[in-house]
């Protein structure tokens, strides 16, 4: 167990035990906050004992000695409250998960959608950001990764292939797939069957768009409270 700052070496034994217990109860709190709280409370105890010391000579004789009478020190500690209660308050003050998506999360969504156009590397970065984020559940991550790997770039490639097999001549303004593919496939007889073309278009274009919309909604909805950390 970490000892507090050296300053609390001069405190009575009960106070040091109290601060040790407090530091233990605060183990779930980030180190900087834990240290700050323990230091502040140790200063509080020292201050309170000194106040008592100023109030009367009869008290001063005992409170300043290392073996201060339990009654005075325990009064100070009683007013501070049980270490577990302070720790509970400290956990309740920790920041709750964010409701607004972070920059990283937005980057993940954008890169998953259009990052594939950056030589596919952008999409891979998007996947890394997606999986390293705590915003989404495993289910969301799996769907977002597998529902058209490569994002819209894949749609564009599929569209180009579709155009190639159905004959570019019948679709002069073909860019990046889109609804035209189905139309083209329907118009030609030599390429993919019209129904298959439509399905591919819906999945290839709709998939990435659905995925990014879903991830955006989930990122905003992510506001589950800190479990069991309510401040009471």
């Amino acid at each position: 167990m970490r000892r507090g700052s050296s300053s609390y070496g001069s405190l009575p034994l009960e106070a040091r035990a109290y601060l040790d217990e407090l530091a233990g109860e605060l183990r779930e709190v980030p180190r900087a906050r834990r240290r700050e709280i323990v230091d502040d409370i140790s200063a509080h105890i020292a201050g309170e004992l000194r106040v008592d010391h100023e109030r009367g000579p009869s008290l001063s004789a005992v409170t300043t000695a290392a073996g201060a009478p339990p009654v005075v020190v325990t009064d100070v500690l009683d007013r501070l409250g049980p270490p577990a209660e302070i720790a509970r308050a400290a956990r309740a003050e920790l920041p709750t998960p964010r409701r607004t998506p972070t920059g990283r999360d937005i980057a993940a969504i954008v890169l998953l959608l259009v990052g594939g156009f950056l030589f596919l590397v952008g999409w891979v970065v998007g996947v890394v950001l997606l999986w390293s984020s705590t915003t989404w559940r495993l289910r969301d991550k799996v769907v977002a990764t597998l529902l058209v790997p490569g994002g819209l770039a894949t749609s564009a490639v599929l569209g180009a292939i579709g155009v190639g097999t159905t004959g570019a001549a019948s679709c002069p303004t073909q860019v990046g797939g889109g609804p035209h593919l189905g139309t083209c496939a329907a118009q030609t007889t030599g390429g993919l069957p019209a129904a298959a073309g439509i399905v591919i278009v819906i999945v290839a274009v709709g998939g990435p768009i659905f995925t990014s919309t879903w991830l955006s909604i989930q990122a905003r909805r992510h506001d589950r409270p800190m479990l069991g950390h309510a401040g009471h």
Partner: peptide, 13 residues
């Protein structure tokens, strides 16, 4: 205030 000590985490926040 439930107890004095709980104010320190609040001040910190």
């Amino acid at each position: 205030v439930a107890s004095q000590g709980t104010l320190y985490p609040l001040l910190s926040r």
